[in-house]
Every structure is written in C-alpha cells, then in structure tokens.
Write a protein that binds this DNA or RNA. Structure first.
Length: 290
DNA sequence: AGGGCCCATCGCA
DNA sequence: TGCGATGGGCCCT
C-alpha cells in the first residue's frame, strides 16, 4: 500500500507538472525560429526561470533547450533510420538485440477473437480508473486478460471515458482505482520495465487494426517508423492510409507506441490526444535513452 | 463518405 | 533546391 503511494509520488512529483511542460513544449515548437531563452519562456508562463528549469529538467531529464533539439524534424528523421534500409526490420533487429531495448517496456499481447470483437465487448468486464502520469491525467482500463485501454483526460474525465467506452459499447464498466493503480506505476516508471515480467495487454479491435497495433509493438524505444513501413510489415503495402486510420484508433496509448509512427518525411502528422503530447512522448523517450 | 497517407506536379522564392 | 498547395489513387470502417 505505502509502496504504491511512493511510486506514484516518484512518477509525478508535482500534480500539475505536465501542464507546465506542455506549455513549454508549445512555446518551443511554435517559436523555435526565434530561439526563445529560458527567461522568455518563463516570462510567458509566469514562473521564475529557475523553478521552470527545475520542473522541466526533472520531468524530461533534459533542459528545455536540449529537449527542443529532441523534437526537431531532423531528430524525427534520425529516429526513422538511414534512408534505403528496410526501416521496420532494422527497428525490429535493434529491438531484439540492441541497446535501444534495454530501457523499453516489455509487453505480451493477445487479441480478442473476431467473435468477441463483433460482440462489441458483450460479456466483458472492464475496470477503469484515473491516475496522474508524466503526460497528464490518465484513464486506465483493464480486463482480466490485461491492459485494454489507456487515454488522456485533459481536464474532462467524462469525455475521456466516453471516447474509450464507446469503442466497446456492450462491455460492463466498473470504476476501480485500486485495480488500475498498479498498471500506471508499471507503465510510466522505467525502473519497473523489465524482460522477466512483461506487461500483459489485450488488443480489442478489428482484424486489420490488431495487425497494425501488433506491428507498432515491434518498434523499440528510440526508433520510429512511417505509416507505409507498417503497411509493408503487415503485408499490405498499399494500405498506408488505412494504417493511419488504424493507428489513430489505438486504444492503448503510449504502451502501444502509436507516437512512434511518423509521416514519410519525418513530420509528426497527427495524434489522437494532441500533437503536443506526441512531441512530449518522443522527447521524454529521447531522454530515457540519454 | 471520409480519414494521423503517399506520390507526382506546379508555382514560387 | 526547398517550401506549400493541389489532385488523384489507395484501402479500411
């Protein structure tokens, strides 16, 4: 009991920390041409520069300036790997043997059967709860087969819950923060990531969607792939657009790393929970590697 | 019908 | 060259 409480405290030392980080990221990406100084940013947010630096560095493991480096287009292109190589395969290779995977969250996944999917979750009991995380208030949904959903509330718990619950309209939902609490700690605390006890997740979606999400799970920390890479990986090279739609419907944000899917030119294109959060995740992951 | 896509073109600096 | 903008083809919900 006390251990769990301590863990959560370690993850988000201050409750509204992500809001500050989000503002900093927005300013950095909007005005990166002007190279705003720490003082500029602090003035706009209305916080003393020293405190801002402290909060941001504790959150990201990087100073705002270093973080800015990590979210540029150049960096995105580097995540995609060298041109000409089969990107997803090199990523997969790294994932199995390279140092990149050392700090990644290990996951075992199973998919709902087509019948269960068609039944829209009928007979399924989903427990859910809201918790703090490095990326703001987070909704966690679990079944007895593992983690089924992870989403961000952004100040509106009801809308967030509806957005998720409508995906499995026939399921039964039970609010149970005690049950979901251990998951939030596992997912966002890199100290809890290890091979021996992989996190169980269950993928509930159409056959096509599940194949896309399984492909996403192969991308290791610190790498990215394009939508067309994924299309090729699932054996439907012409379906990149449909892949984009399926990636956008990923119900287990962060754990199924849809933020590591980029446009072919390295642009971040879209994110269901906001482009800023996608930047935040990529920057945060860059910091985990450093 | 309508997307978190992609490619080929075109017009502009 | 390197950008935006545009138009057409693609394939799943």
């Amino acid at each position: 009991m006390t251990m769990i409480a301590t863990l959560e405290k370690d993850i988000t030392p201050e409750g509204r920390e992500y809001d500050t980080v989000r503002e900093v990221i927005e300013i950095l990406t909007e005005d990166y041409r002007e190279q705003p100084t720490l003082e500029d940013i602090a003035r706009r947010i209305g916080q003393p520069p020293t405190q801002l630096q402290k909060v941001f560095t504790r959150w990201a493991g990087l100073s705002p300036k270093a973080f800015l480096q990590a979210v540029t287009l150049d960096h995105a292109k580097r995540l995609l790997g060298r041109e000409g190589l089969p990107l997803l395969e090199t990523a997969l290779e790294l994932g199995l043997s390279g140092p990149g995977r050392l700090h990644d969250l290990f996951v075992t996944h199973e998919a709902m059967s087509p019948g269960e999917w068609k039944a829209k979750g009928a007979g399924l009991v989903i427990r859910y709860g809201f918790h703090r995380s490095p990326f703001g208030e987070t909704l966690v949904m679990i079944t007895d087969r593992g983690l089924a959903g992870l989403a961000f509330a952004d100040g509106d718990q009801d809308a967030c819950f509806r957005d998720m619950a409508e995906r499995w309209p026939a399921a039964g939902f039970v609010r149970d923060e005690q049950a979901t609490q251990p998951y939030i700690a596992r997912v966002f605390d890199p100290a809890c990531w290890n091979r021996d006890q992989p996190l169980r997740v269950v993928l509930i979606g159409s056959d096509f969607q599940v194949r896309v999400w399984q492909s996403l799970l192969k991308i290791p920390l610190g790498r990215a792939v394009t939508y067309s890479d994924i299309a090729a990986d699932i054996g439907q090279p012409a379906a990149s657009r449909a892949v984009g739609a399926a990636v956008g419907r990923n119900p287990i944000s962060f754990v199924v790393p849809c933020h590591r899917a980029l446009g072919k030119n390295g642009a971040l294109t879209g994110y269901h929970w906001g482009l800023t959060r996608k930047r935040a995740m990529l920057g945060w992951e860059a910091a985990q590697l450093g």
